[in-house]
């Protein structure tokens, strides 16, 4: 199997971004990848409602948005008590690449992190990775989400030095 060419037509994607233009660009990319089922939301609050109804297989969210940002959205989704699929892969897109933002996103349980400008190839690779190499989840007293200690060696977005200390309980 060529891992770079899965059929994405049966999967449902939820795209959350406060910019109409960015949602259109992301949706255009997804259609190009062969995605057929896309729901859009303009902030985290609307995204939660859409996630509960649409039951997406993959969520792509912006980080900073009014009403509810991507970090708070992810934290809410990852709550095992939430009425959404708490295991759903979440790809966070952001124009801000400061390390503390990356760590914040990772600490609330994002699956993949992608900085803007968004390139079609990079987004496609992240989507394929969530499908073909799903991270196991880890649950501690303070964290529930993907096991970043298991991240792929070829992932150049996050380095080993950035790994959060969420896997150990003293």
């Amino acid at each position: 199997m060529d891992p770079l060419k899965p059929d994405l037509s049966a999967l449902k994607f939820l795209v959350i971004d406060d910019s109409t233009f960015m949602r259109r660009i992301i949706a255009t990319m997804l259609h190009g990848f062969g995605v057929r089922h896309i729901e859009e939301a303009e902030n985290g609050t609307a995204g939660l409602e859409a996630a509960a109804v649409f039951k997406p297989d993959i969520i792509i969210t912006d980080s900073l948005m009014p009403a509810m940002d991507g970090t708070e959205f992810t934290r809410t989704i990852r709550n095992p008590e939430s009425n959404c699929n708490c295991f759903v892969p979440i790809i966070m897109l952001t124009g801000a690449t400061e390390q503390w933002r990356v760590l914040d996103a990772r600490d609330v349980g994002v699956t993949e992190f992608l900085s803007k400008p968004i390139a079609a190839k990079a987004l496609y690779q992240r989507i394929v990775a969530t499908l073909t190499e799903p991270k196991r989840f880890v649950k501690t007293e303070t964290y529930f989400g993907p096991d970043w200690g298991q991240h792929r060696a070829e992932d150049d977005t996050l380095t080993a030095e950035e790994e959060p200390q969420v896997h150990m309980i003293d």
Binding site: D7, A10, L11, V138, T140
Partner: peptide, 19 residues
Amino acid sequence: INVKFIAVPPDLRPKYVPL
């Protein structure tokens, strides 16, 4: 050390096939 590792339920895998 009271850390639970969870294999993600295979909800997505049946939904995609190679082109």
